[in-house]
Structure formats: C-alpha cells, structure tokens
Design a protein around this nucleic acid. Structure first.
Length: 598
RNA sequence: GGGCGCGUAGCCUAGUCUGGAUAGGGCACCGGGUUCCUAACCCGGCGGUCGGGGGUUCAAAUCCCCCCGCGCCCGCCA
C-alpha cells in the first residue's frame, strides 16, 4: 500500500517544516549566526498555540550573531521571503512565530489519510526485525493488574514497531523449571488429605465438579499464596519442592508437571486475550536446559576473564568492571551442587534470540532492573556483539502502600476488574439503547470494558508508578478508553447517516472554522507521534495523542453542523472520515477495538 | 547502608531526553448547554511555592549539587 511512497512524504507537516528549516537556517547564517537546518529543526517548537503553529526562540542565535535578541528576531523575520506552505512569519520579542497555510495543510493531510487508509500514520522507517519479549509471568495462577502492565506495554510497543515497518515477533518466556512452578506441581500432586491446612482452606467451598469447570489458572492458582507462606516455616516441605526443581533440571520425570504448567498458562493467556494481548511464540525455559545450551553457557562463563570459584565449589562472575554496584557485583553462575541459576538460563535464552533476531527488546518491571544490568554484563563478559534493549516500567501501587502482591493479599485480579468494567459498561449501554439485542449489548459492553482497563494502564508514563483505584480504572469519562470509542462511534454514525462510508472529495477552503482547522492540525501530527513512540518506547504518548484527536473531534462535532450544512457538507464529511480513520488507527495501535455504535 | 525510578492544584496525569514566551489534560466541585448529526459530549468557573534548598544561564518543571518523602532492588529465588 505504501510502496513507492517516500516515507517522509507521508507526514503532512513535513512539506511545511522542511523548507522552513532550510530557509531559517540560511537567513540566520546570512546574518551572522551560522546554524544548520538540522539544528533549527531540533529547536523548532511544534506544540502550536494562538501565536502560530511553529515557533523558534532566537536568543542563542542572537548571542551568536552578537545582536540584541528582539532586534535580531525582527531582522530574521524580515529577511525570510515567502516560504512554501507558510502563511506568515512574525517576530514577537526574541521569538519567531510561523503560521502554516491551513488550506494547504488540510489538502495534504486529508489527501494522505485517504491515500493510506489503514496504513495512515505508519511508516517503513524501521526495517530491522525485532523480538519483543514481554509479560513472561510464571505459570502459577491468574494475572493481577500489576502484572498486566507489562503485557499492555509490550503489546502496544509491538504494534507500534510493526506500524513503523519492523517485522516483530513477540515472545512469552515461560519458566517451567523454577521453584515457583515446582510449588504448584508439589501441592497438586499430593493427595488433598496431605495438604497443609491453610492450602486446604484456600480451595475450600468448591465441589469437585465446580473445580473441574474452573479456568485452569484460577483452579490451580488458589493454594499458591498459602503454599508460599507454608514453605517459609516448613523446611522439609521446601526441600520437597527443591527436589522437584532438581528433578526437572535433571530431566527426571515429574508426574503432572508439564500438564499443569501448560494448563495454568492457557488460562493466563485467555485472561490477556480479553485485553487484546496475544503472543507469536511461547518459549519454555526448560528447552535451554535440555538442548545443552545452558551447559554450554556455564562452560564458557567458567572460562571467562572474571570468573571465580567460591570455596564451596560454586562458580561466580565478578562484574565489578561493568558498572554494577559493588554489593551486587558477584553474580553466581552455578550453585555449589552444580545446578544453574535463572540468570544463566536467561543468557542461553538471549543468545538464542540473537541467533534469530538482530534486535531484541525486553519489557521488564523495575524489580528486574538489576537483573537486566547483570544480564547485560554477563553477555558482555561472553563477548556478545549485540545486547538487548530494556524497557523498564514502574509498578502499579495500591492505596494502602506498596505494589500489588498476591502473597500479601494486596491484589486485584485482571478478570475481576474486567468483569466489573463490563458490568458497568452494560449498564451504560442499557441506559441509552432499547433497540439492541442482548448479544449486541454484551458485545459492546465487552469492548468498552476492556478499553477502559487497557487505556487506564497505558496512559501513564513507564517510569511512573500507577496508583490503582477502582473508580479511576473504571472511568468511562474524560481521559479514558470509552471516550475514544465514543468519538469514533459518533463519527461512524455521521458517515452512516450520510450514506457516505468513504468520502474523499473535499475542498480545503471549505474547512475554515477554528474547530475544523484545529482538528486538521491535530490529525496531521499522527505520523510524527507514531514515529516518536517507536523511537522512545513511550507508549503513553500515543494514549495522550488519541485523546487529543477525540477531544478535537468532539469540539468540532459540537460546534459544527455536518449533515445539515450546505456547501461545506462534503468537505466536513471528509474531515469526519479522516478523524475517524486517525482515531481508528491510533486505537488499533493501542489495542482498543473500535465500535460503530455504543 | 548502597543502587535505580518517581515527587507537578483536594486526587490522577502531560510536559523533563533536546532549557525558552500566560505549565497542558482528566476526576471532584460550582455554573451553563439537548425541539438539531449519539450529553460516555461540549462551554465557562474554581484550584499550581512544578517536594525543599542551593547552583549554572539572558531564561530552569526541564541541566548540576545537597536534603526530604514514596516505590523497588541489593538471594547459591525467579
């Protein structure tokens, strides 16, 4: 679809910005401030205001030229002849303000939107294949909201990278041999009568039939916290779990282990599916143990320049030279008994990734930050030529303090949140419609509920803790997922009523009201936003942009008649179609399903 | 104790990388708007020592230093 198109040409602002930066750089250079166009572009303020669409501060350039700033700005403004795409240039104090030609921008913007359709906003800037690993929670029970932030960030990032031309493979790394998975197997392979009292209590109340009907992650996950607590005070039981772990590592058959792990994972994945999160591949940690690659990594690490053997026979790596804090510089490679640790197995996994992908991105919670640095140091020690890029996000915290924790009972499960969101959405739908079937109502409620939850989590910057509060997570107003869906549905309704699904004929001169022009300017920024998110991994910026588009569309909608308008009707319908397309494409990148009506 | 991240109105949040002109939104609260295209909306109002102090600069929410608060990490767990 976009074949043959110059990637830069798909950004409607580009035909304005490119000649402008060249012209300004030339004027500055001619007046004693030698600055190249690239620097001008970087310093150009594109936020837009009532003063203009673009602005440039000239204080530094004035200093360079040895002139008084305001006078210098006036000189430059006067020196700039007509610039293609610009309506006016003015100097205010030491600032230069530029107003883009709105008709030209409207023509370029709507034209590009219609030409590119579902690829509008996308580019082919990043051609390098990339593996995005995210979520990777242990198969021990249902997802809580804290865990799912990883999946929402990872899935959104994968969608954005695909939209910028990268072939993306998403992976979920399943730890099927560690202590956590062993705990689940340990309890479920015991007769119920031999379970610790607290574990029995955790599963009480369900008949065998009810239990069999439960989704596997819910079913097998119930005794997990009780078992975890029990093991802390019962070393003999902890030893049994450790034995299971060892057997797994030694490939001794552990009855039911794989069956349970797979079942639990299938339930967890179903839960993520409700949020639109899917994976291309599941990678089982055990494969690296069984195919000999862990053994190989261990052998190479023991011969590495900074390898040291402890008195008890354990092997470690001194990573002091890699910038890790002194206290954590000694990384254990193998235990005294010779068995491997998670960090070492993760190296085998990453070496495998790099054999297949030139670029590797890992989405990790902040609790794994040190692990990420350690992994990087160990890969360096092994002479790896490529390193993973880490996308680190902060935790979701709860009002009573600290992050969510299943074991401490400070937890909200994804399914419970989604169920509540869908229930509330259903009530909202029923308030407004009596013409829909039960299935239609349910279908809308499912989409709206999922959008509310997913948007609530992506909207916050990665490096910020998200405070979880039910009422905020379930908001259908203001800066929310349903707000986006609502604007989309309104636009869809207009086009439906006009009987024009794909209006493409428009006259830019007819889009002259402030609301129309503001909407065009916002739509035009979409490609830049997508490219920026791909570059920075700041997926929350996309959530913010989508809200802006919906907001501008709503303002336009409230202030401007479309169907009942006269000569402007066709052009306004085209603008509605462009807004709907932009919103739809942005929502697709955010993993939100559009609704034609709600 | 050491390390990483964060601190913006009653609450949540954008902007910090790349310093610029009155710090954008949302929730809550107050006041308006529907014989008209979906009021899950729009318009107006209220509300800000950008955690505190110092520094750099013509200019600091943004850069540097110190301090305070919060989250997390510092396992031969994962």
């Amino acid at each position: 679809m976009t074949e043959g198109l110059d990637p830069a040409a798909t950004d409607p602002w580009e035909p304005v910005v490119a000649p402008l930066t060249v012209a300004v750089a030339a004027a500055l250079t001619a007046h004693g401030a030698a600055i190249d166009p690239a620097t001008v572009r970087l310093q150009l303020d594109r936020t837009g205001s009532e003063r203009g669409d673009l602005a440039l501060a000239l204080h530094r350039a004035a200093k360079l030229a040895g002139k008084e700033p305001a006078a210098f700005a006036a000189t430059i403004a006067a020196a700039l002849g007509p610039v293609p795409g610009l309506l006016s240039v003015s100097a205010t104090g030491a600032f230069l303000n530029f107003v883009a030609d709105p008709e030209r921008l409207a023509r370029a913007t709507l034209g590009t939107v219609f030409a590119e359709g579902e690829h509008w906003g996308h580019s082919r800037a990043l051609a390098t294949p990339v593996c995005v690993e995210h979520t990777s929670a242990n198969p021990t029970g249902p997802f809580h909201v804290g865990r799912v932030r990883n999946g929402i960030i990872g899935d959104t990032l994968a969608r954005v990278l695909r939209a910028t031309g990268a072939p993306v493979t998403t992976q979920y790394y399943v730890d099927d041999i560690g202590r956590q998975a062993a705990m689940v197997t340990w309890i479920w392979s015991k007769p119920r009568a031999e379970w610790p009292e607290e574990a029995r209590a955790a599963v009480a109340g369900a008949t065998p039939e009810e239990e069999a009907a439960m989704r596997p992650d819910l079913r097998y996950g119930r005794p997990y916290s009780a078992v975890s607590r029990y093991l802390k005070s019962h070393p003999e039981a902890a030893e049994e779990v450790a034995a299971i772990s060892r057997h797994l590592e030694e490939r001794v058959d552990v009855p039911r282990h794989t069956e349970i792990a797979r079942a639990v994972l299938s339930g967890m994945v179903a839960s993520l599916g409700r949020l639109g999160i899917t994976f291309d591949e599941f990678v089982w940690e055990s494969t690296f143990l069984f195919n000999g690659s862990v053994e190989d990594v261990v052998a190479r690490l023991r011969k590495a320049p900074h390898a040291v053997q402890e008195a008890n026979g354990a092997w470690a790596l001194d990573t002091t030279g890699y910038g890790l804090p002194k206290e954590t510089a000694r990384v254990i490679v193998t235990r005294a008994d010779g068995t491997s640790l998670y960090a070492v197995r993760d190296i085998a996994y990453h070496e495998e990734k790099f054999r297949r992908f030139p670029r590797v991105i890992d989405v990790l919670g902040q609790d794994h930050h040190l692990h990420a640095k350690t992994l990087d140091a160990m890969l360096a020690e092994l002479g790896a030529s490529r390193r993973p890029e880490f996308v680190i996000y902060q935790d979701i915290t709860v009002p009573e303090g600290g992050r969510m924790s299943t074991r401490q009972g400070k937890v909200v499960f994804v399914d419970d949140l989604l169920d509540e969101a869908v229930d509330r959405a259903r009530a909202e739908v029923l308030k407004r419609h009596d013409d829909l079937s039960g299935e239609e109502v349910d279908a809308i409620a499912r989409v709206v509920g999922a959008a509310a939850v997913r948007y609530h989590i992506v909207r916050v910057a990665l490096d910020k803790n998200v405070q979880f509060r039910w009422e905020d997570a379930l908001s259908f107003e203001g800066r929310s997922g349903p707000f986006l869906l609502y604007a989309y549905a309104r636009a869809s309704s207009l086009l439906r009523k006009a009987g024009a699904d794909r209006p493409t004929a428009f006259d830019p001169a007819r889009l002259a009201t402030p609301a129309e022009r503001a909407l065009v300017r916002t739509i035009a920024r979409f490609p830049e936003v997508v490219a920026g998110v791909a570059r920075t991994t700041h997926v929350h910026a996309l959530a913010g942009y989508a809200h802006e588009v919906a907001e501008e569309f709503n303002r336009f909608y409230e202030s401007t008649p479309v169907l009942a308008s006269g000569a402007e009707r066709e052009s306004r319908l085209a603008l509605v179609a462009a807004a709907r397309r932009t919103l739809g494409n942005a929502m697709a990148l955010l993993g939100l399903e559009p609704l034609e009506r709600m």
